[in-house]
């Protein structure tokens, strides 16, 4: 396993696009989240709403929701990494050189876990910084700090789920542009068609991207200072986990039977 990680690291270590993207990510994600300090909606008469963006505990929900959208860029970069292996025919070369097909998949799985975890750690640190320093009313009770921290776990699971989806698509489509295009078209058009026009409501709730999205439900209520949940719904978590397993199972079955 160490060998797989070392090989992945060698590929990234001297990849300028990787460091450029990492740098941009490290600058723009914190930048985006911290800039939301000024987010508010002015209502007439000098009152406004939205001032509680960084308050514990809703800060966890708010920033993971925003970062979840921002992470589309991470998913696209990940698609680039996987499709590179087809474009350069290096996936085939790895098998020739002495990896099993399972090990090829495992190394991508490890990369998914590392990317999700690093992104989650970054957002976790940002949450603490925002909650303690940028909030206009710092917490008085430590219980508030951790109350909605489940959203951080949901953020990790959402990253893992979307990256698993990205891996699966990349393996099957193999072409970088088409993979990103299909990712977007499926997410924006196809799944919504299925959800609202084709499938009955009962089964529509089990569609994959809908579930991944619901891991971090809309923060609209927070912005209006309305009560909101402390974490994702259990059903959404379970369905997402099942999809992650299915996506990796599907990737494995696909890779196992292919001529590369």
């Amino acid at each position: 396993m160490l060998r797989l990680l070392r090989a992945e690291w060698l590929k990234l270590k001297s990849y300028r696009a990787f460091w450029l993207c990492a740098l941009l990510y490290l600058i723009s994600l914190p930048g985006l989240i911290m800039s939301l300090h000024t987010f508010n909606i002015k209502l007439g008469g000098g009152t406004s709403i939205g001032f509680s963006f960084y308050h514990f505990p809703v800060v966890w929900h708010n920033i993971t929701f925003i970062a979840g959208w921002f992470n589309l860029l991470l998913y696209f970069f990940f698609i680039l990494l996987i499709t590179n292996e087809f474009q350069f025919r290096t996936l085939r070369q790895h098998i020739i050189d002495g990896l099993s097909r399972e090990q090829v998949l495992l190394s991508k799985g490890l990369l998914v876990l590392i990317f999700s975890t690093l992104s989650t750690l970054l957002v976790g640190v940002l949450g603490l910084i925002c909650g303690f320093t940028l909030s206009d009313s710092p917490p008085t009770d430590m219980a508030l700090v951790t109350q909605k921290i489940a959203f951080l776990g949901a953020f990790w699971l959402q990253n893992t789920a979307y990256l698993s989806f990205a891996t699966f698509l990349s393996l099957i489509i193999q072409k970088q542009g088409f993979t990103i295009l299909f990712f977007l078209i499926y997410g924006i058009v196809l799944e919504n068609l299925l959800r609202f026009r084709v499938l009955p409501e009962f089964s529509a709730q089990y569609l994959p991207l809908r579930n991944f999205g619901e891991l971090l439900p809309s923060i609209f209520n927070n912005l209006l200072d309305q009560p909101s949940p402390d974490g994702p719904a259990t059903q959404v978590v379970v369905v997402s986990l099942i999809y992650i397993i299915l996506l990796w199972g599907g990737s494995w079955a696909w890779l196992k039977t292919r001529d590369l």
């Binding site: 990849y15 350069f88 070369q93």
Partner: peptide, 12 residues
């Protein structure tokens, strides 16, 4: 065909 990472050096 030779399959390599074009952005990496021969050594890498």
């Amino acid at each position: 065909t030779p399959n390599f990472y074009p952005y990496l050096s021969a050594v890498r």
